[in-house]
Structures are given as structure tokens and as C-alpha cells.
Simulated scan of single mutants.
Amino acid sequence: MAGILGRWGDGSEKTLALDVIEMLSRHADQTLGGLSVWLEIRSYPAVLFVTGYGLGLVRSRRWSDLHDLLAAPIQKRNDRGIERTVEKLFLGCWPGGNNDYWKNLDGFERRKTALSDHLCGLFQNWSNSFVGASLDVERLYENWEILSSLAYLEAAGIGDIDAALAQGSSNGWVWFPIGRSAWHEDMREQILESLLSDPTKSELLEAGFAKRDQNFLSKSVSNYRRLAGRMRW
């Protein structure tokens, strides 16, 4: 349902989608007793909704609505203020995003990006209704992850990124959550080259990505490549 809203919506559904995400997230944050791992993965439904809606938005190239989704304010756990959706419900940003948890899935014991791989495989099965059978869902999913990671980096200042990149490849990057594109180099480079080429680059900047600054986008991508290059396996 979230994917269909993202794929064929016209923007009028955005408030509803964000309300659903907020509701699922608030429900997950309620304090309950029990095993820590089960408490920490209670945000999983919210993560699924954000991912499905985001994939639909990427599929339809609704860049402005995608950026609004990632930048939408959402309540922090225990009512400790506000953060962006991408900072709370993307990959390892949520408590249940611990990679060791997802290694418990059958066949994922040795995966370095177990959650990312799980979500990619899940939506390969779920996405026909809003993606289409002929599209490369793996590429679509990694496109979503890369754009989300770049949106996460918008919290950094360009001076921070410059200072990190100046340190060299051993430890010179500003951290951000990264998924399977860390090791899937060929796909990663295809996607990054596409994002840096017009008209996509101009459309993303106009939509608010990289603070609408071409220089910030270029340096964010350099930072992305730097961290990804250090995480090859």
C-alpha cells in the first residue's frame, strides 16, 4: 500500500503517509517490558512503510516528495525532541537496525549488510504492484538507499565534509548509514553517475537534496565513495 501511494500518488497522500509513519513510530516507542531485542525491533513496521513509500517515490521520480519524506520531523524516542525521519527509521539509525539481529535470519548469518539485504529481497517480492515486473528492483532499492544516505549527510556542514576528506582515505569521512552499496561497487557507481548527470542532478537539487547546492552534492558523493571504499569485503 505504501509503495502504491508513492508510485501513483499526486502529493495529496503525503500528509496521510507521514501520519501513518508517525503513528507507527510512536506506538513502537511506548515503554514495555520484555526482551531487549524484541523491544528494539518494534519500529520495523514503520521502517517497512518508509521504505515502501520511498521506493514508490523513487520509481516515479517524485524527488521533492522523497526529500520531504526523508526530512520530515518525527518525535525522538522518549519524547526527547525532534529528528528527521531519515535519522530515525533508516538502516542502522533505529535501535532494531543492529546488523547482528538480522544475521539471525535463515541464510543471513554471514551477511555484512544483513538488514539492507533483507529489505532488498523483501521488496523484490512485494514490489510488482507498484514497480512493474520488468524493472531492476535491486537497482531501484539501492537508488533509494543512496539518496537516503545523501539526505542524511545534509545535517553536516560543507566545512565538516571538507575537513574529513582532507584527512585521507584511512579515516577521512563524515559518517552516515550505508547499506549494500558499500560492497556492491558496480551498481553503486552506475547509480552515482546517474544522479550526478542532468537532468537528474538538476531535479534533485531543485527538490532540496544537498541543500540545493551543487558543490555540496559533489562533496557528499565524494564522502559517500570514501566510506563505501573503506567497507569493501
Rank of each mutant, 00 (worst) to 15 (best):
G6M: 11
W8F: 15
G9R: 08
S12Q: 12
S12W: 09
E13W: 08
K14N: 13
T15G: 10
T15H: 12
L24Q: 11
L24N: 08
S25I: 00
A28G: 02
D29L: 04
G33N: 13
G33A: 15
L35T: 15
L39S: 08
I41M: 11
S43C: 11
Y44R: 07
Y44P: 02
A46F: 03
A46G: 08
L48T: 08
L48E: 09
V50L: 12
G56K: 06
L57F: 07
L57V: 07
V58W: 09
L66I: 08
H67D: 09
L69A: 06
L69E: 03
I74H: 05
D79V: 06
E83S: 07
V86H: 04
E87T: 00
L89R: 08
N98P: 06
N99C: 01
W102T: 03
K103E: 07
G107W: 07
F108T: 01
T113M: 14
A114Y: 03
D117R: 08
D117V: 13
L119M: 14
C120Y: 02
C120A: 14
S127N: 01
S127E: 04
N128D: 13
V131L: 13
D136V: 12
E145T: 10
S149W: 07
A151N: 06
A151T: 06
A151D: 05
A151I: 04
L153W: 00
A155P: 00
G157T: 12
G157D: 12
G157N: 10
G159I: 00
G159A: 07
D160V: 12
I161C: 12
A164C: 06
Q167Y: 00
G168V: 00
S170F: 00
V174T: 04
I178S: 10
I178R: 06
W183Y: 15
D186I: 09
M187E: 05
E189Y: 02
Q190A: 14
Q190G: 15
L192Q: 09
E193L: 10
L195D: 09
L196S: 10
D198F: 02
T200E: 10
T200P: 02
S202F: 03
L204A: 10
L205S: 02
L205R: 07
F209G: 11
A210Q: 07
N215W: 03
K219H: 12
K219M: 15
S222N: 13
Y224W: 13
R225Y: 00
L227D: 01
L227R: 11
